[in-house]
Write a protein that binds this DNA or RNA. Sequence first.
DNA 1: TAACAGATTAGACCAGTCGTCTAGGGTATG
DNA 2: CATACCCTAGACGACTGGTCTAATCTGTTA
Lengths: 199, 199
Amino acid sequence: MTSQLATKESTKTLLLESGIEIMLEKGYNNTGIMEVLKRTGVPKGSFYHYFESKEDFGLKIIDHFAEGHKEKLDKTLGDRSLSPLSRLKGFCRLAVSNFQSLNCRKGCLIGNLSQEMSDQSEVFRKRLLEIQGESHRRFADCIREGQQRGEISKKYNGDDLAELFLSVWSGAFVRAKTAKTIEPLHAVERLLFEHILVP
Amino acid sequence: MTSQLATKESTKTLLLESGIEIMLEKGYNNTGIMEVLKRTGVPKGSFYHYFESKEDFGLKIIDHFAEGHKEKLDKTLGDRSLSPLSRLKGFCRLAVSNFQSLNCRKGCLIGNLSQEMSDQSEVFRKRLLEIQGESHRRFADCIREGQQRGEISKKYNGDDLAELFLSVWSGAFVRAKTAKTIEPLHAVERLLFEHILVP
DNA sequence: TAACAGATTAGACCAGTCGTCTAGGGTATG
DNA sequence: CATACCCTAGACGACTGGTCTAATCTGTTA
């Protein structure tokens, strides 16, 4: 029974992670179940054993990705051994180097799906919004802490600044995906860390 | 002959404009030719008379949208009767009010398709990149002019600032689409015009 | 060992899409 | 009237994607 559960979980996880890979490049609408199945070698019938529908699969993928994303935030923004500003920098460096090692493809699933699905599905929109909100909160906390320490300029409202940070970041990723270079990310990093955030 | 041309052009334009409407909400992959045809009442056979393929249609849609976009830029950023900073503000106000009147849907086709198609089609990517570049150039020009006049802070590099402006703006639209409120746009506007841009 | 239950697989099935094709209708010109 | 060309009509084939049902496999229990 334990082995069954283990198998079940690993097949399911396999499908989810493979799905994340494909959806990162092709979006929700354009990724077909068959492609996920071919890549993993899982038979078609199994898919609908583990997931109710493509929509269910998509939502589970979002949750699975969000978990991984949360861990990344923990490792960067949550690292109390660094100053708040350094944590923000660390987050950016990690994101840029991941993106670069992927040949300027994919980007962030939450951002991609938010753009694609917000007008198409209320279920997706709401789930995505929750995750965005959680991210925003964590960035805002980090920024406010930096402001208290005098490391980040106090002239801005912390929530607004977090909003700007996230917006500029996700926008720059789209630019970078299109240009297939990390230069837009660097431009934005320079402005943020050399001028805007500093007091 | 003139009337034929007129008819031809109007049917073609009708298809393009209807296509823009649908693609703005559903993206490229998820909009079917049939839906465009149904909405316009144009018969299917005509579609392939005017366009070679769906891809051709998509690219023509991008061009058509880009023309309209250029006109919007002319009216806002190109209005020499206003100061550069006022032009930037005017652009933002117009964009926000359009977006609001559309119930926080759709956004900008170039941004949307850039996100969706950059990893999927080189043809699309290149065309989209050109248009982004053109936008960037126009914003950078306006910003530099503002800097020369002492209206915009000189401590930033003009190109970088244009990059930030466009990134933050498109990113905030995604946030706003997901949250279905214009608040993210306002937050970003406040920071931009009350703190970052001003000397 | 035999029966059973639940997990998993196989693939038939239907709906919908894209893109093509041929036949026909409209319209202006010689 | 004839002719040439633009446009329309919609059937059609090929294919894909998502769903569903029936069969199989596996492990447990009597």
